[in-house]
Nucleic acid binder design. Structure first.
Length: 593
DNA sequence: TGCGGCTATTG
DNA sequence: CACAATAGCCGCAG
């Protein structure tokens, strides 16, 4: 069968837009497709091109084993609209990070993960035990995948690709049934679809990268640590010079490694400065007591850039095409937030001027306003808190409801969601309980469940595992602090996880609707989107961001009275985005009566 | 060599 | 310095 033959075969068998079509693909071998009733295999030199043909001609929902396939497609420049990602759905259902085919298959088929066969033996034909059949049979008698298939033997031939795609189609059907059966979470299937699209987006961001101006970026590094050293010796010399600037203030005769917090603390003590730790916030209070403190703070800044965000960092991640690349993950962490490696999520703000749109383009940047308390209002169905979301500044609305100032209200709201129980906020927290009992009860229940070791599900249906606390060697009960910490984690997970779900709905809605305008999402930062956009489409994309938010919220929480807001701006570089998310906090917590 | 502690950065 | 994350270096255990 030819590449175009695949499309014809699918059309002949009546596959329509949005229907599940499982895909198995290896760039050097070919591709295979499976519907619920039929399957096809093609030896092809350009399997991604064949996928593109089917995408244009039909536009199915592609069933993928994992985002590995999405990344292969993205590298070939093939963008598909819809997916059902088995690894992604597995993580939602099981609340685990590991989602390799063996585990996904086992869970989808109700097999105990504890009975998973171990890795394939070096000699495929020497395997014994309960294994059976020849190497072309992907499933063992006990129902598990054969380890060598799970490890990649499925790539060996078009016929194996075909069988692999049939298995994917079968696993998807089982997962869809399981998602539909999650009690109290009818939308879990919709969550899995949306999060599968997030996997596509992550693959695209991983491949395409973030536009960054090398000259500007290197200039920022130079501002901290000087010009790029010619060699290792020069780098060591530069390092020694930075160290000396601090050490000249220290007591002579003592050897101090500034990278060791213990030694730094000892050095400060010799100078009459006694601190419990040497964190920057603490040192800043003592800046005027001794010149060494200021020097040390400057050293820390330079050292951070030299080791983490320096020339080596740029060399590793910034490509010749002036795109900065890290690896994106769609649902890392227990609550299911997106993560990125390479420093994309924790890049110091000083580097934002280097994030520059390409010629003829701009960034349309948008961030959600006060998303976590608004999400809390939606998921807990607290009518009073939902009323507060109708105001642009939620904290101001809460403040007038509680009869406190805005800063106090903000601390109280955040404290409620993070599980703060002590401190100045105690009175405001009591007021929170009176004003928003439904939301507070929702948080309390999550906290108690987690503290007791019971699993949680987010609003969208993602399992957050807590498990029974492991038995302790000495048989003593678990420390109270540990139980309390798990409770706070649970309290926050239902809010943070739900906020992640809403944010991701927003992102994939924009990915879908902005494609025709050339809008490319290049950064996701928990509540912020950076969209690389052709100059002439800036205005339409800006308004699209807002309408996508409204639609995403309505699909995520149908009929919710909660209002969600986004601050949208059009900028040439990331740093140009003015931070107008909230009015300044007038009265600091320390000044509260 | 692996891992907990400390520190810094982001939301 | 509550909740989450990535990432680097130190110091210690194995």
């Amino acid at each position: 069968m030819s590449d175009t033959g695949v499309l014809d075969a699918l059309l002949e068998s009546g596959v329509a837009r949005g229907e599940l079509v499982a895909l198995a693909l290896d760039p050097g071998v070919g591709l295979a497709l499976a519907t619920a009733t039929r399957s096809w295999a093609v030896a092809s030199a350009d399997p991604c091109g064949a996928v593109a043909l089917v995408e244009r001609g039909i536009g199915p929902r592609w069933v993928l084993w994992s985002n590995d396939t999405a990344e292969t497609l993205a590298r070939a420049g093939v963008r598909v609209a819809r997916a059902f990602d088995l690894a992604c759905a597995h993580r939602i259902l099981e609340g685990t990070w590991a989602a390799d085919p063996a585990r996904v298959w086992a869970a989808a088929n109700g097999l105990d993960a504890g009975t998973l066969p171990s890795v394939a033996p070096p000699d495929l034909f020497s395997s014994v035990g309960d294994d059976d059949g020849d190497g072309d049979e992907p499933v063992r008698r006990d129902g598990h995948l054969r380890p060598e298939w799970a490890a990649g033997a499925w790539r060996a031939s078009p016929e194996r690709l075909r069988r692999w795609s049939v298995l994917a189609q079968h696993a998807a059907a089982e997962q869809i049934a399981a998602l539909g059966a999650i009690s109290g979470r009818p939308a879990a299937l919709a969550t899995a679809r949306a999060e599968s699209a997030v996997e596509l987006l992550c693959a695209e961001m991983t491949v395409d990268g973030l536009p960054m101006d090398r000259v500007v970026a290197e200039g920022i590094v130079a501002g901290f640590v000087g010009p790029r050293p010619r060699d290792e010796a020069a780098a060591a010399e530069e390092r020694a010079r930075r160290d000396a600037a601090v050490l000249r203030h220290a007591t002579p005769g003592f050897d101090v490694d500034l990278r060791s917090s213990t030694q730094v603390r000892a050095m400060l003590r010799r100078l009459g400065i006694d601190v419990v730790d040497t964190r920057a916030a603490r040192l800043r209070e003592l800046e005027d007591t001794h010149p060494v403190v200021r020097e040390l703070l400057a050293w820390r800044r330079a050292e951070r850039v030299a080791t983490t965000y320096g020339y080596a960092w740029l060399d590793e991640h910034l490509g010749a095409d002036e795109r900065f690349r890290g690896s994106w993950s769609g649902s890392d962490g227990a609550a299911g937030r997106m993560t990125a490696s390479g420093g994309l999520h924790n890049m110091p703000a000083e580097f934002r001027p280097a994030v520059v749109a390409e010629p003829g383009h701009v960034f349309v940047r948008a961030d959600l306003g006060q998303v976590e308390p608004r999400v809390l209002a939606a998921v807990s169905h607290d009518a009073a808190l939902a009323r507060a979301t109708l105001q642009g500044d939620l904290y101001a609305a809460v403040a007038s409801e509680l009869g406190v100032d805005r800063a106090t209200a903000k601390v109280a709201v955040l404290g409620a969601m993070y599980g703060q129980t002590t401190g100045h906020g105690a009175d405001a927290l009591r007021r929170m309980r009176r004003a928003y009992p439904v939301a507070m009860d929702y948080l309390d229940r999550a906290e108690h469940a987690a503290a007791a070791g019971r699993d949680l599900r987010t609003y969208g249906g993602r399992l957050v595992r807590f498990g029974p606390p492991p038995p302790r060697d000495d048989g003593t009960p678990e420390p109270r602090a540990s139980v309390a910490a798990r409770g706070r984690y649970g309290r926050n997970a239902v809010v943070q996880g739900a906020a992640a779900e809403l944010f991701k709905r927003w992102a994939v809605t924009l990915r879908a609707r902005g494609a025709d305008l050339g809008a490319q999402i290049v950064l996701c930062l928990h509540d912020e989107l950076l969209v690389h956009t052709p100059l002439e489409q800036a205005a339409p994309v800006a308004s699209l961001l807002d309408s996508c938010l409204q639609d995403a919220a309505e699909r995520w929480a149908p009929g919710t009275p909660t209002r969600f807001v986004a601050d949208v701006s059009v900028v040439a570089r990331w740093s140009d985005a003015k931070d107008a998310s909230a009015p300044p906090d007038r009265s600091p917590a320390s000044g509260a009566p």
